[in-house]
């Protein structure tokens, strides 16, 4: 049997990882401010940027 494409699976796994990280209840965790900037703002953009960086790393390493 041909094995399913590992890159597609890794990306889909990233998507599944993103769902709990970017929805409630985890989203209510960051509170207050970090360095004068609201923690929620930093958390959302941080997790989002992290997902994008991981996706770029996975996708650009080898061909789909």
């Amino acid at each position: 049997m041909k094995r399913a494409n590992p890159i597609r699976q890794r990306l889909a796994a990233l998507s599944l990882l993103g769902v709990p990280l970017l929805t409630y209840p985890l989203l209510s965790l960051p509170s207050g401010t970090w360095g004068g900037i609201p923690a929620t703002y930093l958390y959302l953009f941080g997790v989002w940027a992290g997902l994008i960086a991981l996706a770029a790393w996975v996708a650009e390493r080898r061909g789909i």
Partner: peptide, 19 residues
């Protein structure tokens, strides 16, 4: 507030389902 971000997070997650 930040709720406008959902409109852009959804596509990010969907696009990762490349298959």
């Amino acid at each position: 507030g930040l709720s406008f971000l959902t409109i852009y997070i959804g596509p990010t997650l969907m696009l990762l389902c490349v298959g």
